[in-house]
C-alpha cells in the first residue's frame, strides 16, 4: 500500500524571490488518487517536484507517511525516490539514444543486482501492454505519444508505491489516452499505489478519488 501524503504550510519561492507555491494544507490518504488541475504556469509541476523531493521548499513540511522529505538531505531524498517513487515527467525526459526497453528499465543500471532482471522484465511487460513492440529502436525516432508510453512504463517498472504523473495523456489521442489511463489505474489499484496526477484531461481527472485546482500557486479545494 502506498503512503499517505501530508503537506502543511508549504512555500516555494523562485531564486528571484517570486512566490511559486503557497499551500497551507493538502492531504491525500494512503492508496488514494488525486488530480491537480489549473491554468498554465499555476505551479502544478512545481508541486509535483516538491512532493518528489526534487526541490527544497523555502518553508513548510511534506511527509509521505512518517517520511518527512523536507527534513531529509538530498542523498536520502534520492534514495527515497529510488525505492518508492515512479515519475512521469511533463516532457518525458528519455535517453534519446537508448531504445524503449533500455529507457523503461534504466533504473536497472543502478539498482541492486538482485532486482535488475525482474525490473527489466516488468518494464518490457508494461511496454507491451501499452502497445509498444519495437523496444530496441532509439526513442529519438519515437512520436510524442510513443514517448509518453515509454515514460509511463519507466514509472511503473520498479517497485514504486507512489506514482507522480505530469500530463501523462497530453500527447495521446482520445482512445490511446483512455487506454493508458486504464492501464495506469489498473496498476495503481493492483499495487495500492498513491497517485498524484497533473492533467487538463477531464476524462482522466474524473476517474481520480479527488481533484484540486491550483491558481497562482494557491489551492482551491474543489
Amino acid at each position: 500500500m502506498g503512503p499517505a501524503l501530508s503537506i502543511s504550510d508549504l512555500r516555494v519561492t523562485s531564486p528571484s524571490g517570486r512566490s511559486l507555491l503557497d499551500v497551507s494544507s493538502l492531504n491525500l490518504p494512503a492508496g488514494k488518487t488525486m488530480g491537480i488541475a489549473g491554468p498554465s504556469g499555476a505551479g502544478k509541476s512545481t508541486l509535483l517536484f516538491a512532493v518528489a523531493g526534487l526541490i527544497v521548499p523555502t518553508a513548510g513540511r511534506i511527509a509521505w507517511d512518517d517520511t518527512v522529505i523536507t527534513d531529509m538531505r538530498q542523498r536520502a531524498r534520492t534514495a527515497f525516490r529510488r525505492r518508492s517513487v515512479g515519475m512521469i515527467f511533463q516532457d518525458f525526459l528519455l535517453f534519446d539514444e537508448l531504445g524503449a526497453a533500455a529507457n523503461a528499465g534504466v533504473s536497472a543500471l543502478f539498482q541492486p543486482a538482485a532486482k535488475r532482471v525482474a525490473l527489466q522484465e516488468t518494464a518490457e511487460t508494461h511496454l507491451n501492454s501499452f502497445g509498444l513492440s519495437d523496444v530496441s529502436r532509439p526513442v529519438a525516432s519515437f512520436s510524442g505519444g510513443e514517448r509518453q508510453r515509454v515514460a509511463a512504463a519507466r514509472a511503473l517498472a520498479g517497485e514504486a508505491t507512489i506514482l507522480l504523473a505530469d500530463e501523462p495523456t497530453a500527447s495521446l489521442h482520445r482512445e490511446a489516452a483512455d487506454a493508458l489511463t486504464d492501464d495506469l489505474l489498473d496498476q495503481v489499484a493492483a499495487r495500492g499505489m498513491t497517485m498524484v496526477v497533473v492533467s487538463h484531461d477531464a476524462a482522466l481527472l474524473n476517474r481520480m478519488d479527488s481533484v484540486v485546482e491550483i491558481t497562482d500557486g494557491r489551492i482551491n479545494h474543489g
Binding site: 542523498r75 534520492t78 534504466v106 533504473s107 543500471l109
Partner: peptide
C-alpha cells in the same frame, strides 16, 4: 540527463 538520473533515484556514485 544526469539530473534525470538523480530524479529517477540514481545514487550520486552512479
Amino acid at each position: 540527463q544526469m539530473a534525470l538520473l538523480q530524479a529517477l533515484g540514481a545514487p550520486r556514485r552512479f
